[in-house]
């Protein structure tokens, strides 16, 4: 199986690249990569569903807003992302719209915390759609 994401060198913050055969998959893997800075997503039980509905003027702001939603859900509601069950991206007259169903669990002591993601940034952000069903996004998050 091809790798879903990888972490890259960045002295002060955390930088990763997430892959997919299309934008949808790359976005979903980016959310998992980011959550893995804080928790082992493999161990998160998919007990709760969260429907997220995100808008962005362009793809970059869509990605920032999408990832930021999981930072928010963790801080405000204690929701830890385990996996993305479905994700669609549509072009609208104002830009883009993303709808996804996220599965995860409410925070408890049984989940080990490995770090903190404070904010998603536009720094060094890249979104590439290459041929033959290859796509990747690059993100730096403030930790």
């Amino acid at each position: 199986m091809e790798k879903k994401y990888e972490f890259l060198e960045h002295t002060a913050d955390a930088k990763f690249r997430a892959y997919g055969k299309n934008l949808q998959e790359a976005f979903a893997n980016a959310a998992i990569a980011m959550t893995n800075i804080m928790f082992d997503t493999e161990k998160i039980k998919p007990l709760l569903n969260r429907a997220v509905d995100i808008k962005g003027d362009d793809l970059k702001s869509l990605l920032v807003n999408f990832l930021s939603e999981f930072v928010y859900l963790l801080d405000a509601e204690g929701f830890i992302l385990g996996r993305i069950a479905s994700l669609t991206i549509n072009k609208t007259s104002q830009g883009y719209r993303l709808a996804a169903i996220a599965k995860g669990d409410k925070y408890s002591d049984k989940y080990e915390t490995m770090g903190d993601v404070k904010a998603v940034t536009y720094a060094e952000m890249e979104i590439r759609e290459e041929d033959k069903g290859k796509c990747w996004v690059q993100v730096v998050v403030d930790i």
Partner: peptide
């Protein structure tokens, strides 16, 4: 406010 409310009095990680 929603992020700050439950975090008051916490140290944070990193």
């Amino acid at each position: 406010l929603a992020r700050g409310k439950p975090q008051l009095g916490t140290l944070g990680a990193g």
